[in-house]
């Protein structure tokens, strides 16, 4: 099949748009996780009981949305960027940090370090927010 220059350029644009669409969807997931993780840990570790239940329910809804989103766009294949993988790995560490530190402080019987847990809650989602924002804004 002979391919004209115009058709070739159109195909390059179409495929590029597919890649951007997938990248933006992945960026939305990371952004949502990053934005939700601070309030989640705050409610779980520092808030009243009812806030913990609400946070748990919202988190479950978020995970379901994350699993459904790629299927809704008809894509199950994946693309990857090394810097996103590194940031996601770092995001996993900062995500777990508030829980690990709070548990450690509880075991050690330290009760005056709530500020440390609060600070970790604040930064827990930053790597994922940054990765999500960069993925959604990249061309």
């Amino acid at each position: 099949m002979e391919l004209s220059a115009g058709a070739a350029l159109d195909e390059v644009r179409r495929v590029g748009e597919e890649v951007r669409k997938t990248r933006r969807a992945y960026g939305a997931v990371l952004l949502a996780l990053g934005l939700a993780s601070g309030p989640y840990w705050w409610a779980m570790l520092l808030g009243p009981d009812w806030a913990g239940y609400v946070a748990g329910a919202v988190w479950i809804a978020l995970v379901i949305w994350m699993l459904v989103l790629p299927r809704r766009s008809g894509q199950r294949g994946r693309i990857n960027t090394p810097w996103v993988s590194r940031l996601t790995l770092l995001g996993g560490v900062t995500f777990l940090a508030p829980m690990l530190v709070a548990t450690g402080l509880k075991i050690a019987g330290v009760e005056s370090a709530t500020w440390l847990v609060a600070a970790l809650c604040l930064i827990s989602g930053l790597p994922m927010i940054y990765a999500g924002w960069r993925l959604r804004s990249s061309r």
Partner: peptide
């Protein structure tokens, strides 16, 4: 490169740093 399927593969991989086989299959 100037062949329909190979052009699509090259264009997809140029836009994404890495793509898995399934992504290429679905996109192309």
């Amino acid at each position: 490169i100037h062949a329909p399927v190979r052009l699509s593969i090259m264009a997809a991989l140029a836009a994404a740093d890495q793509a898995d086989f399934r992504f290429l299959k679905e996109t192309i």
